[in-house]
Design a protein around this nucleic acid. Structure first.
Lengths: 263, 263
DNA sequence: CAGCAAGGTATTGCCATCCGATACGGCTGC
DNA sequence: GCAGCCGTATCGGATGGCAATACCTTGCTG
């Protein structure tokens, strides 16, 4: 889903290293993506593009392994606990998350507002960590949650560091949803924001995702200079005037990013 | 790893529904469990009990699917971002987590201390959600992290609701590690704590996992009365006298659990 | 209450697909 | 400059996954 590698195998059945059963199995897990609740075998088969038999076998296997379980009422299946182990290992082993965590904690102590780390994934910014502030309006557990790149401070910060061609590609395919009445949905205006971000070194987004919220984002580049993630600090407009927020917070956020990159 | 189902297939190769390739593939992902960093093909093969060829094929497939990526230095592989999507779906679709989340948030507002939800998984209690308090000493992102059932307030609360036979089984196989100088490692003393918990309806653990921390746990049963999870509220001994903590917090925690179960 | 649809489960024979041994080129550190 | 890892590529053989089909239960519905 992120930038497809151009050298793609043309024929989908001619990769002798590709283990089809495994891909189908992962397709079963992914079929829960849009789901509203437990899924029946037929639903899984349809969503994952499998025959009923295939779905049966794969589900059976996942149940033996613990990754799926039957829903409590005996109708349909759900993801089960061992999934969380994978997440934990992912976060634990991700070098960026590893380096960032103590620094973000420190940052949160200083700013006393909510601090997030999100990872760039094309159209999405995926939350990897959240350091909470005192008052909280949302789930703490939105690890794995994601928001559109094009309407968040962190996303703008990433876009500002990306080559123009990639920015164009992302904007061209973006789905501009109106998350709040003030969400910017005009690509031209977003380009302005990106330009502004390039000048400032950080992005400021007001009420783009949630009314009453202001957020400041700074991108994190990898060693080659390509942006791979962002930190953002979010606060309430009831307590901050946006410019004042920017003045106070931006230097701290920038400093935190410097520490992360240096580590 | 959690309680094996007794009706096990005796011959491991005679289950016609079992998709071996898928199981091996998941084994590759699980091989990152104890890892310290990226894993090479040989390491994966060894850890997962595969031939090098098998590891190669499975890793290759996971890379195409996005779940694994090559480490930045080109040596070894790491879990990649799509893993988080699975977690997110798991948490989103888990009925218990769903019902519990708003109630835990409310609870946190009232007690102004850290509130956790953890899921019972045999020897472990696995964190599913954390509502932070103001000061924080640890990663916010320990979703998927786990602690031994036998040394946490939540674990004791679960054990207190479990049939005696299961308690015996868990204690018999438990690995009593000394996480702090005050961690209880004597099964007999733990049994006392469990008995106490049965009387009180909640468990109180002081400095079992972290020095200076007191935690109160209440188990959450499913519709059949079997405990499946626990909430715990953790606070600092610098601010609370344990008995006072219990008196103030226990009723609120119990009330929260009632709401979750009723929902 | 009969009947039907949809749920999960079980069986079977065919052949595609996965299997493991082996070989290759590049990089690192002796 | 050699030894030992790394990730990658190839290939013939048979294992193991494949889809179709049938089975049993449950719950809805006419």
């Amino acid at each position: 889903m992120p930038g497809e590698s151009p050298p793609e195998d043309p024929a989908p059945g001619t990769d002798p290293l590709f283990v089809q059963s495994l891909a189908r199995g992962m397709g079963v897990l992914e079929s829960f993506k849009g789901a509203e609740g437990a899924l029946s075998l037929n639903q899984i088969a349809t969503r994952a593009g499998l025959t009923r038999s295939a779905a049966q076998r794969l589900v059976h296997t996942f149940r033996k392994l613990g990754y799926l379980r039957m829903a409590e009422d005996g109708r349909g299946f759900r993801l089960d606990l061992p999934i969380l182990d994978l997440t934990h290992d992912y976060l634990r082993l991700n070098p960026l998350v590893r380096r960032a965590n103590p620094i973000l904690l420190e940052l949160r102590r200083n700013v006393r507002e909510r601090v997030d780390l999100s990872l760039f994934d094309g159209q999405r910014m995926v939350y990897a960590a959240r350091m909470q502030s005192k008052r909280e309006t949302f789930f703490a557990t939105l690890v794995g949650n994601s928001v559109p790149t094009v309407c968040t401070s962190g996303g703008w910060a990433v876009l500002a560091m990306l080559p123009q061609a990639e920015v164009d590609a992302i904007l061209a395919q973006a789905d501009f949803r109106q998350l709040t009445p003030r969400t910017i949905t005009d690509p031209a205006v977003i380009r302005d924001q990106i330009a502004l971000t390039r000048q400032n070194g950080h992005a400021l987004a007001t009420e783009q995702i949630l009314m009453g919220e202001v957020a400041l984002g700074v991108a994190i580049p990898d060693s080659s200079g390509r942006p791979v993630a962002a930190i953002h600090i979010a606060a309430s407009l009831a307590e901050w005037e946006p410019e004042e927020f920017r003045r106070r917070i931006a230097p701290l956020a920038a400093e935190a990013v410097r520490s992360i990159v240096a580590g």
